[in-house]
Design a protein around this nucleic acid. Sequence first.
RNA 1: GGGCGCGUAGCACAGUUGGUUAGAGCACCUCCCUUACAAGGAGGGGGUCGUAGGUUCGAGUCCUACCGCGCCCACCA
Length: 907
Amino acid sequence: MEELAKKYSFKDIEEKQYLFTEEKSFFHAKTNSSKKPFSIVIPPPNVTGILHMGHALNNTIQDILIRYKKMRGFESLWMPGTDHAGIATQNVVERKLAKGGVTRDSIGREKFLELVWEWKQEYGSTIIRQLRRLACACDWQRTRFTMDEGYSDAVLEVFIRLYKKGLIYRGNYIINWCPRCRTALSDEEAPHKDTQGFLYYIKYPIKDSKEFVIVATTRPETMLGDSAVAVHPKDKRYKSLIGQTVILPLMDRPIKIIADDFVDPDFGTGAVKVTPAHDPNDYVMGKRHNLEFINVLNPDGSCNENAGDYQGSDRYEAREAIIEDLKARKLLVKVEAHQHAVGHCYRCHTVIEPYYSKQWFVKMKPLAKPAIEAVQEGRIKFYPQRWTKVYLNWMENIQDWCISRQIWWGHRLPVYYCAKCRDENDYKKGVIVSLQKPDICPECGAKDIVQDVDVLDTWFSSWLWPFATFGWPFREKSTDHSQQSTDHNQQSADTEKQKRELEYFYPTAVLVTAPEIIFFWVARMIMAGFEFMGDIPFKDVYIHGTVRDDTGRKMSKSLGNSIDPLEIIVDYGTDALRFSLISITAMGQDIYLSKEKFEFGRNFCNKIWNASRFILMNLKEDSGSWQKVSNKEELCFSDAWILSRFNSTLKKLNSSFAQYRLNESANIIYEFFWHQFCDWYIEFSKLSIENKTTRAVLYNILEKSLRVLHPFMPLITDEIWQKATGQKTSIMSQPWPEVDEVYIDAGLEKEMRILMDVCCDIRNLRNEKNIKPKDKADITIGSDDQHIISVLDKNREYLIDLAKIQTLNFAGEKDLDVSINPTASSTGCLIMMKAKRDEGRDTQKEKEKILKQIKEISEHITRKNKLLNNENYLKKAPAAVVEKEKRSLLELKQEKAKLKKIKNALK
RNA sequence: GGGCGCGUAGCACAGUUGGUUAGAGCACCUCCCUUACAAGGAGGGGGUCGUAGGUUCGAGUCCUACCGCGCCCACCA
């Protein structure tokens, strides 16, 4: 057994311990038929990511579960990896190029992708390195990337399967378009934010008339693409106008006035301009009335050739110009301030444009069905439960998923077109969906074949994460015929191994993630799980809260209010960061953070260190003899007590773990270790430290405490544990302690409670009378309760030591002299103290205090009397509760009598 | 428009199925550098649990309404 350094210095141990556990492959999992599997796939951070508090929380939770389950005998696998994050990564590299005045268009697709890969090689593992600093027990040998060769196979395979099943189609629809990223986005990628804007009222002149129809719009520039004006069919104001023609201002285009139920007569003027190519509602109306779809915008958001005089100007410049021009023509009636929800690009926050374009979609309704049922039937459970409703609500109203993106970084669609057969009006014609580029068109034999230029939505690869990370679909690479079969055999063996692993570890146990990811990822993984694996991807979904600053704002780079986990690690240590974070994270609640909160974990680390130091220091000579705790019968009072406490604590701990109540688990251990083990037991142990049994118990409880602390604070616990046991291994490889019911003794714990209470009463009394620790006091305890007297007498050494007593006597209650320093104990005893220095007694103050106590206790007694006289209560409340009340009333009465006695003795 | 979460001590928060006098942390006050620990120890003060009703023998906990704060969803031109 080694001694510990006087000062706890996390800098000296944390990195060392992590490297040790990683090197020794404690994190590696494999199929093991003798164990049950427990697997988690990491929510793959973006390759562009740098560690923030959200990651720290998310991964600490997973790490605790992984280590805990491993200790509980499961084969724990934590699958790590990163996400190629199409748009985000492309943006990062484009920004970098822009500094050198280079655009992606100027260098071309191939060169650009080369540069992105270079960037990925250089910076893509930053987040992985940072996760190591958090001490994550990921199986790093398995680290996956969503654009790895094998993983990409899975993505293409899935596309092809869904296409063949008729669940993927291509067509012209209104989608969300980001003019800055110049790509289509799914609905989830274009979150709506309340935005302050204006409602512009514009006159549309009626053809061959002096009259006007006034329409209201928030986006006047879209009027360039108007192809109708719509009114409600029952709106009396406009009934006569239906079917007439108006002249679209600025464009001088005649357009019809149509009637449609969609129009709300109470909004604006009740007449609405219809722009089928730039508004989702208008799109539907356009289809209904067979209107023209006029796209007036270029992909970058500037006006195109359909925009008349405004061609070339940016959408917002065009808006300004149009307003000015309408004003000049006296066609602008008024402008009102107007708040409305506007979609924004989730990557660059640019206002998106609803945009009519040709895209690829996945039909979602058929995929959603089993995914809905699995959650309804409880085969997948959300923690906290309330997310179930959010999930089901979204799934039941699911819309088709736009999966094509007009960027370069990502999985290119496995779609090829035959130039000859291709027909823009029939997406299936001349289309070849295949893994490899076909040499000739299977229909016409032409050789002019091109691949679709789009790539797939990043989430179209992430939704396969729980099984594609295991190598699914296990396609064997087409081996060169010239190569010999050894390679091939090796490859088959690998594939077989992967298949077994997938079978063993899938479905995974739990997915840990943030609420904003439920639609993007959780829901889609469930659908993919059923579609491609025929089973759920995970049993539990643990949704944790959002990390906020101490004023409740979401932590974000742009607000500048984020706390950098790496800075916390430098200042307080990894263990301190983890323990602080987890102990303030109530399940599913948001987390409010400030830097000071990490002192909590740091102080606890320090406490653990010092307590351990004391124990190792005292036990260093015993080599080996501490290993065994004697029979229960041979244990002294305090030794038996701490064993009882430990085991009942462990019981509570296990049940909180089972419910994912990790903050509760952390606080249970904290309370036990600090306030029972350190505050009381270690102090008790000093009295019997020469005793073999006590030394064994000290060692035993410390060693087991380190085990249960390990999932939360892996580094400090491994360091101390190795020094204590002399074993060069990690606690991770050790079993979780078993609850030993034999040691749990409620009666004993109650007796200890009496001892502690009396001790606290005496300390309190000393404090009040300002008696210094070195001034020992003479204590007489008066009670008629033989049990209490015997408990105190039996354990008098403890009391004498902990309460700094000179002489300790017992007396009958009546015989006690209460004229000196008396106090009434909550245990029902009267305590009198005689101290050597006893000057400056303020009897007036004492009297006030005791009167206040009497008043309080009288109120309680009145309340209880009333309750116990209530017939209904006696009839309906459980007998045990009534008994408890009666007992407590009796105790209160006794206490009151004692207080009165003390009061009367005061002059 | 629909849904969800929160409101408990000066501060930021726990409180599992309703059951003694509502809890720890930080901060504050008093005392103590006692041979593991001042990043510590021993004590202490501080709350009519957002408001108003209701159910119940009993409500921080369940129900209803309302008031504040925050979040999510929705085709509010």
